[in-house]
């Protein structure tokens, strides 16, 4: 089958790409001073001999290409190394936090699409009406707001200013995943803690998805087949939802697939501001301490996701639109 061949070829092409990325990132991290030895430099009990011995033990005194080779060989055998600051396995650190980030991202996507798609459709149907103008302007504003600042503003309004009228406590929590002192997973408590971070993260997507839905609806809404559908006497609802949206959705699906891995970046801000124990905050901490096994793993996992979702977007596009053929 043509498609399978295409997918296999793209996947094979991803391997050298990931190798080059790993070299670039590895070199950049190795050229950064600091790292695991920085913590010991201030310690008066550490003699230069101790430092040298430790460097030797950690394998830090080897030339850069040797270090890379060791890292790569271990990595392809499934050993991603240990975090230099927590001494825990890198994969454990990541797998502990990944579900938290995924919760955040998934919720943000549901909210963003749930808001943006209906608004985009109505905006397109009622082009140049007051509704359209207001929504287009709001979407423009949404795209221009720096999300980290938006997060701060959310905390000011919903945590500092607005209080729960019954208990007098802040209306929404300003950080964390659950109420302090509780253990385990409680759905309502989790949702309560998700509201502000998800609002912040979905804002990042909502503006562009609204504009995107609007313009791809506008692209199809004036086409002949829509006129045909109308002249058959179909209800307007059916024309819009079944005939127009189906084709307008193709570019939207593609763009969502392309954006998804990039959301880890947006999540970094959200997780830092709302002390959400996810991948973004893990990266943030690791970057401050130049914890290279952790940094390498997070960057490479994300790069892999970017490449895979790129492929997924292309495949979806071809699948949804039979006019597209990949050779």
């Amino acid at each position: 089958m043509k498609m399978t061949q295409y997918i296999i070829r793209r996947l094979l092409g991803a391997i050298p790409l990931l190798l080059v990325i790993s070299v670039i990132v590895f070199v950049m991290i190795q050229l950064t001073p600091g790292g695991p030895m920085a913590a010991f430099e201030e310690n008066p009990n550490m003699t230069p001999e101790d430092m040298a011995r430790l460097e030797e033990q950690l394998g830090l005194n080897q030339p850069i290409h040797v270090k890379y080779y060791h890292w790569l060989m271990k990595m392809v055998h499934g050993d991603w190394g240990y975090s230099m600051t927590t001494k825990r396995p890198v994969l454990k650190e990541i797998s502990d936090r990944l579900p938290n980030t995924l919760q955040l991202m998934l919720a943000a996507y549901l909210v963003a699409l749930g808001v943006a798609i209906p608004i985009g459709i109505i905006s397109a149907i009622k082009q140049y009406t007051l509704f359209d103008h207001v929504m287009t302007t709001l979407a423009f504003i949404g795209q221009a707001i720096p999300i980290f600042w938006f997060g701060l503003v959310l905390i000011i309004v919903f945590n500092v200013w607005l209080k729960n009228p019954v208990t007098g406590k802040p209306l929404f929590p300003g950080g964390g995943m659950q109420t302090y002192g509780t253990t385990g997973f409680h759905l309502w408590d989790r949702l309560y803690h998700l509201i502000l971070p998800v609002t912040m993260l979905s804002m990042f997507l909502m503006g562009s998805y609204t504009r995107y839905t609007r313009s791809s609806m506008l692209d199809v809404i004036h086409l002949d087949y829509i006129r045909t559908a109308r002249s058959k006497g179909l209800a307007e609802r059916v024309v819009i939802l079944r005939h127009a949206l189906k084709n307008a959705a193709i570019p939207i699906v593609t763009i969502v697939a392309l954006d998804l891995p990039g959301l880890f970046g947006g999540a970094l801000f959200t997780e830092t501001i709302f002390s959400w124990p996810g991948i973004g905050r893990l990266f943030f901490r690791a970057a401050q301490r130049v914890d290279y096994p952790l940094l390498m793993a997070i960057v490479l996992i994300n790069a892999t996701l970017i490449i895979l979702f790129n492929l997924l977007a292309d495949v979806l596009y071809a699948y949804l639109d039979p006019r597209i053929k990949y050779s």
Partner: peptide, 14 residues
């Protein structure tokens, strides 16, 4: 294919 924000951070640090 580079994760933009992560690489931005690593590169500025370097």
């Amino acid at each position: 294919a580079l994760p933009r924000l992560f690489v931005l951070i690593i590169m500025t640090m370097m």
